[in-house]
């Protein structure tokens, strides 16, 4: 019974990741894009998929990856997330440098670019904070509040970025994945009680 539950949960998460990717793989837009642009787009989709796992790993909800093991995988997934975004932005840069310059300088005509760039910087900041946790000498609760706040910016920015784009992602599977990411993040935030306990501890 436990094994069945585990299989169901993991099956569900694999589907949550695989369905949007598979749907995007059938996009007619792919035919008119060169491999670098296609890779850049899929790196973005993979990043959104990884974003679904991050809060669940942080709290230890995934069966077989509870507590400390979950945290360790959370770190590796965070690294993969940074790598995916680097591939995403580099690929777009190679495809059309002026569009990426516009996005990075917040002068793009498309509002979703700004959301994406905000999410990118928040992601890099969250990753740096994680990498330098021993060096930054913050109190554990303060560190967690900072890291989680940045993660919330990453999630909101990424979801707004993805939803406003007309790209290779299929609309329904994109909205579904975005909803799951928001739900997983909200659930983790509530259960970790980052805000309330953090505020009390600082008094």
């Amino acid at each position: 019974m436990r094994r069945l539950r585990m299989a169901l949960i993991w099956g569900g998460f694999t589907a949550a990741l695989a369905v949007p990717i598979a749907a995007a793989a059938t996009s007619p837009l792919l035919a008119w894009r060169d491999p670098v642009y296609v890779a850049a787009g899929f790196a973005g989709i993979v990043a959104m998929g990884l974003l679904l796992f991050q809060p669940l790993l942080a709290v230890g909800y995934l069966p077989g990856l509870a507590a400390l093991r979950g945290r360790r995988v959370h770190r590796w997934t965070g690294g993969a997330l940074v790598a995916a975004i680097v591939v995403h932005v580099s690929g777009l840069w190679i495809t059309s440098p002026p569009d990426v310059v516009d996005a990075l300088t917040f002068t793009s005509p498309t509002p979703f670019s700004a959301w994406g760039v905000i999410a990118m910087w928040a992601l890099f900041a969250a990753a740096l904070l994680a990498a330098g946790r021993r060096r930054v000498r913050l109190r554990w609760r303060t560190w967690r509040l900072a890291h989680t706040s940045l993660a919330v910016v990453v999630v909101i920015g990424s979801v707004a970025h993805a939803l406003l784009i007309e790209g290779t992602m299929e609309t329904l599977s994109k909205a579904g994945l975005c909803m799951l990411v928001v739900a997983a993040t909200a659930k983790a935030l509530v259960d970790l009680r980052v805000w309330s306990s953090g505020a009390n501890a600082n008094r």
């Binding site: 002026p98 569009d99 516009d102 002068t107 005509p109 498309t110």
Partner: peptide, 8 residues
């Protein structure tokens, strides 16, 4: 001129 108009 529109934003991003001269791109590429």
């Amino acid at each position: 001129t529109m934003r991003g108009g001269s791109n590429n």
